[in-house]
C-alpha cells in the first residue's frame, strides 16, 4: 500500500468519525442512536448487494435469505444456554445449537461464513441462469430458506422466532463492521479483480475469451456478497433483539435493492449515500403521519402518508438521476478537492 495524501485523509476521516461516534451518547438521544445503527447495518447490506448486482451484474433477489441465515446463526451463537432452553417451547432445542456460546465478533463472522457457504450451494445450480431467470430462482431460494427456518423448530424455534437477543451491536461496533465491509469490498472492486467483475457484467463473452473463468468469478462474487449480507443480518438481529421468519420476506430484499439502485449500481459510495438517505427519510417522514396543527387548520394523522411521500421522493430521484445518485462514479478525495477548487475560483 502506498501512503499518499488520499490514504492519509481516508484513515484520518475514519478515525475522526469513529471518535465522534464513540462520544455520540453525549449529544445524541436513544432514538437517534437507534437510527444511526440502522444506517450502518443498511450500509453493509447495500454494499453486499452492490457487489453482486452492481459490479457483477447478477440480478439476485435472494438477499433476504442470506440476511436471515446471518441473523439466526448469530442469535443462536450469542444467546446464553439457559435462555435458549426456556424459549424453545415448541420443541426442545437440538444439541449443537443448544451448547454454542461465542463472543459477538465470532458470532458475526460465523454468520457471514454460514451465509457464504449456503450461497455457494445455491450458486452452483442457479448461476447458470441469466438476467430475470436468475432473479426468479434466487427469489425462490430466499423463500425456501425462510420456510426451512419456520420448519427447523429444534434449531430456530420455528415461527415463534427468537426474542431477547443480547444487544451487542452498539453504534461503534456497527461502524467498525461497516468499515470492515467497505474496506474489503473497495479493495476487491477497485483492483484488477473488480475490473474482471465489471467486464463480466458488461460482456460475458469477451471476459471468457480473455481467459477469465466467468462462472468461477460469478460464484465468488455471489458468495462474498452473501458473506457480508450474513454479517449485516447478524448485526441486525442483535440490534432489533427479536427476529422471526416473517421479517425476512422479499420486502427486505427490495428495501436493500432500493438502497443500491438509488445510490447507483456499481458505486460503493453511492450505496452508502443511498442507504443513509433512505433510512433517514423513512424515519423522518413518520412525522407526516401524526396529526398536524398548522395554526389555522388542524389535519388529522393519515396512516400510510409516509409511504406516499416516500414514493414520490424516490420517483423524483430516479427521474432526475436515472443511474442513481452516483451512477457508477465514486466519491473520492480527488473529486472532492476538484469540486472545492472549482467553486473557490
Amino acid at each position: 500500500m502506498r501512503f499518499d495524501r488520499n490514504t492519509f485523509l481516508t484513515l484520518a476521516a475514519m478515525l475522526v468519525f469513529g471518535l465522534i461516534l464513540w462520544q455520540s451518547e453525549k449529544f445524541l438521544g436513544d432514538y437517534q442512536i437507534y437510527i444511526a445503527k440502522l444506517i450502518f447495518i443498511n450500509i453493509i447490506l447495500a454494499l453486499s448487494l452492490n457487489l453482486i448486482y452492481g459490479f457483477t451484474g447478477l440480478f439476485s433477489l435472494g438477499h433476504a435469505g442470506f440476511i436471515a441465515i446471518g441473523a439466526y446463526v448469530a442469535a443462536i451463537c450469542i444467546l446464553p444456554q439457559a435462555q435458549k432452553e426456556m424459549m424453545w417451547i415448541l420443541e426442545p432445542i437440538a444439541w449443537p445449537a443448544s451448547h454454542i456460546f461465542t463472543p459477538f465478533w465470532v458470532a458475526v463472522l460465523g454468520a457471514g461464513l454460514f451465509a457464504g457457504i449456503f450461497a455457494f450451494f445455491i450458486a452452483v445450480p442457479v448461476l447458470k441462469l441469466g438476467d430475470d431467470y436468475l432473479g426468479m430462482a434466487t427469489l425462490a431460494f430466499a423463500e425456501i430458506i425462510r420456510v426451512l427456518i419456520v420448519n427447523a423448530t429444534p434449531i430456530t424455534n420455528g415461527s415463534l422466532g427468537i426474542k431477547g437477543i443480547p444487544n451487542h451491536s452498539t453504534l461503534i461496533v456497527c461502524y467498525i463492521w461497516a468499515l470492515f465491509t467497505l474496506v474489503i469490498l473497495a479493495r476487491l472492486c477497485y483492483s484488477n479483480f473488480g475490473n474482471i467483475l465489471r467486464c463480466i457484467r458488461d460482456n460475458e463473452i469477451a471476459a471468457s475469451v480473455m481467459g477469465i473463468n466467468v462462472f468461477h468469478y460469478k460464484v465468488l462474487s455471489f458468495c462474498v456478497g452473501a458473506f457480508f449480507a450474513g454479517i449485516g443480518g447478524a448485526l441486525l438481529g442483535s440490534h432489533l433483539s427479536t427476529i422471526d421468519p416473517k421479517m425476512f420476506n422479499f420486502l427486505l430484499t427490495f428495501n436493500v435493492l432500493m438502497f443500491v439502485v438509488t445510490g447507483g449500481l456499481g458505486s460503493l459510495t453511492g450505496s452508502i449515500l443511498g442507504a443513509t438517505i433512505i433510512t433517514i427519510l423513512l424515519e423522518w417522514l413518520r412525522a407526516l403521519e401524526e396529526p398536524m396543527n398548522l395554526g389555522f387548520i388542524e389535519l388529522p394523522g393519515i396512516p400510510g402518508m409516509r409511504m406516499v411521500v416516500f414514493s414520490v421522493v424516490l420517483l423524483a430521484i430516479i427521474l432526475k438521476r436515472r443511474e442513481g445518485i452516483m451512477g457508477t462514479r465514486e466519491l473520492t478525495w480527488n473529486r472532492i478537492f476538484a469540486f472545492f477548487s472549482r467553486h473557490k475560483a
Binding site: 484488477n192 479483480f193 475490473n195 474482471i196 467486464c199 471476459a207 480473455m210 481467459g211 477469465i212
Partner: peptide, 8 residues
C-alpha cells in the same frame, strides 16, 4: 480494459 486482459 487492457488490465482485464492481464488477469490471465
Amino acid at each position: 480494459n487492457i488490465m482485464v486482459g492481464c488477469h490471465v
